[in-house]
Write a protein that binds this DNA or RNA. Structure first.
Length: 651
DNA sequence: CAGTGAGCGAGCTTCCGCTTGACTT
């Protein structure tokens, strides 16, 4: 008898089926051990010694595993083929060794990145040893995260009452939200106008935009006000027009790759309105399966876009049957990940059987809709590209001073668009979607009406859950298993709030960000994690000692912590006040200096702290009693207003 | 209705990443 260890029970069940009777497949249910949530779990002055703790539930699992291993010939560690997976195998092995549960049993490490019968049985024939360098990269990652989080958080408690936590991932996610808000606040809207004419040339009328005026190309801001727009409109109305050129260009649109965790969360938000959490809950149920037929989709926490060859074959077959052979490309499509720091331990998220059409499964609301989305996306990813034709019609005045342009596109062959079109976040609507009537070059054109429209440039949009997850993934920050919880932490700490499904930073979040930027700048830089990952890669390649990585990190980090530890709260505030700027003193938009007191008009505002939390107060205290709360400790809210009220704006 | 106030204090909070049930509301 052989004992096989994987992470999840659903996976254990499937693999058991593939391997048959000579094997017992058990799940570890995750990491099994972790650092206890208290001081001293990682000890830099003992050469980064780490204490591990097995919680009660994991202990039960491990006892079951130890029991099964007792009479076994072999222990086969088949956890995920990435850094964390290697670590899980190591943790399990460590515990079993400590229990002395491994007498005589051989230990093998086996990896597969698709759960198909061929992939699994093939992997079983190629066992290897545990990769200790990969495990050491994990240890470095784990220790660093602990040291950053469990050092910075207490610093925050002491220096900024009301602030609760900081960490390598959450603090950068928060910074993204805060920085975007600052961008929005400092954004200057700009007015511009466009002129559009309804024209015809022996055809149905169509609309064309003014693109040339006074023999010059019209830039976006060349019609800055109503007067210039009206003058341009008059010029169009007075002009004699002819069709100068008709150009048709063929184009292709290729399908998007199949889903990863990040893209699934984004699309489910855009198309179904699901939060990241709701998406993951539904996906988990689809993965576990609803009846005896097993899971309906592959593993839902993945950054891989690749698919098992068997699945690609089946997808192509289903496309041929349902849509016709002209929808099947000659070659199967192979996708490569673009995400930084992708581990690609798992396949893309796809139905376990493409033949299981959404109409053939009966599921609860969320599950049904999510399954259909995944089925369509997977099918689309292997379908033929759409072929389109883009048409551009240039219309000039006879004297050549004016130019108008109309664009349109026609889908000649829909290809993958027959099942799926990717949603958009904040992009402007397609303007060249319309079909244009056939017109002949040199035909004269008639103007039916001209309109001038006013527009204003808009600031960048606030992050939604979907766009923030997308950004985090681009920066290589966080993992598929943590995206949804990162969003939750920011809300629980009251660093941000949601408004119309968008993240808005609270003053508390701005303050924490300003503080970290001021005193721990390099640890909240957007590429800190990417740089760390490069070093971790060196560790796993054997080119860098994991303790050397930690020593180097700790030297600088510890110095920064010592530096601020010596400062009194008031000194921190003085230094912070210099740097705070728009984080805490936003432009009020009425031309007054953001740092002068809005009540007395002479006092200077600055940040202070008390047992009520951080607040902004006037230098003329106690004559002037203007205050504005910035960050209150848990439950320490003065009243329902939360100090948000702008006192004294109308004295 | 006004709007907490700054060198003292007891004791509390916290990280990231991997995985699901077993508690009660």
């Amino acid at each position: 008898m052989n004992v096989v260890i994987v992470e999840s029970p659903a996976k254990a069940k499937t693999i058991n089926k593939y391997l048959g009777s000579g094997y017992t497949v058990l799940a570890s249910y995750g990491h099994v051990r972790d650092l206890p949530s208290k001081d001293g779990s990682v000890r830099p002055d003992e050469d980064f010694a780490m204490s591990w703790d097995v919680d009660a539930k994991a202990a039960k699992r491990l006892n079951e595993i130890a029991e099964a291993v007792k009479g076994a010939d072999k222990l086969i560690l088949a956890t995920d083929p990435d850094r964390e997976g290697e670590a899980i195998s190591w943790h399990v092995l460590e515990v079993l060794n400590r229990k002395k549960a491994l007498k005589g049993a051989d230990v093998e490490r086996v990896v597969f990145n698709a759960i198909t019968k061929t992939a699994v049985t093939d992997a079983m024939r190629h066992p290897r040893k545990l990769d200790m360098e990969l495990v050491e990269a994990y240890l470095a990652r784990r220790a660093l995260d602990y040291l950053v989080g469990f050092t910075l958080s207490p610093v925050l408690w002491r220096k900024l009452p009301g602030a609760r936590s900081a960490g390598r991932v959450q603090s950068v996610a928060l910074r993204l939200v805060v920085d975007r808000e600052l961008e929005i606040e400092s954004f200057k809207t700009q007015e511009y106008w466009t002129v559009e004419a309804e024209v015809s040339a022996g055809s149905d009328p169509f609309s064309a935009r003014l693109v040339k005026l006074d023999r010059k190309r019209l830039g976006k801001f060349d019609l800055p006000d109503e007067a210039s727009a009206k003058a341009a409109r008059k010029a169009v109305e007075a002009a004699t027009l002819r069709i100068a050129a008709v150009e048709k260009k063929p184009g292709r649109r290729s399908p998007p790759p199949p889903f990863t965790t990040s893209t699934l969360q984004q699309e489910a938000a855009r198309k179904l309105g699901f939060s990241a959490q709701r998406t993951m809950q539904a996906a988990q149920k689809l993965y576990e399966g609803v009846d005896e037929n097993g899971g309906l989709i592959t593993y839902m926490r993945t950054d891989g876009v690749q698919m098992a060859p068997e699945a690609i074959d089946e997808t192509r077959r289903v496309i041929g049957e349902r849509f016709g052979t002209n929808y099947v490309p000659e070659q199967a499509r192979i996708y490569k990940t673009k995400a930084k720091n992708a581990q690609e331990a798992h396949e893309a998220i796809r139905p376990t059987s493409l033949a299981r059409h959404p109409t053939m499964v009966r599921l609860d609301g969320d599950l049904q809709r999510l399954y259909e989305l995944i089925w369509r996306r997977t099918i689309a990813s292997q379908m033929e590209s759409a072929r389109i034709e883009r048409t551009t019609v240039d219309i000039d005045s006879l004297d050549g001073a004016l130019g108008l342009r109309a664009t349109g596109q026609v889908v000649l062959f829909d290809g993958y668009l027959a099942v799926y079109e990717e949603g958009r976040d904040d992009a402007a609507a397609d303007e060249d979607g319309a079909r244009l009537p056939a017109v002949a070059e040199n035909a004269s054109a008639r103007v039916h009406g001209v309109k001038a429209d006013q527009h204003f440039t808009e600031p960048p949009p606030r992050y939604s859950e979907a766009s923030l997850v997308k950004k985090l993934e681009e920066l290589g920050i966080g993992r598929p298993s943590t995206y949804a919880s990162i969003l939750t932490v920011l809300r629980e700490r009251e660093y941000v709030r949601m408004d119309k499904q968008r993240f808005i930073p609270e003053d508390k979040g701005r303050l924490v960000t300003a503080f970290l930027e001021q005193f721990f700048e390099r640890y909240v830089e957007y590429d800190f994690t990417a740089a760390l990952e490069e070093k971790l890669d060196k560790v796993s390649a054997g080119d860098l000692d994991w303790k050397e990585l930690l020593r180097e990190f700790w030297r600088d980090f510890h110095a920064a912590v010592e530096g601020i530890g010596d400062l009194r709260v008031t000194q921190v505030l003085d230094s912070l006040n210099e740097a705070l700027g728009p984080h805490i003193f936003p432009d009020r938009g009425d031309g007054t200096d953001p740092r002068t007191c809005p009540v007395c008009g002479t006092g200077q505002l600055s940040l202070k702290v008390s047992r009520f939390g951080a607040f902004v107060g006037c230098s003329n205290y106690p004559e002037c009693r203007y205050t504005r709360a910035v960050a209150a400790p848990e439950g320490g809210e003065a009243d329902a207003d939360g100090g948000d009220r702008e006192l004294g704006l109308d004295p």
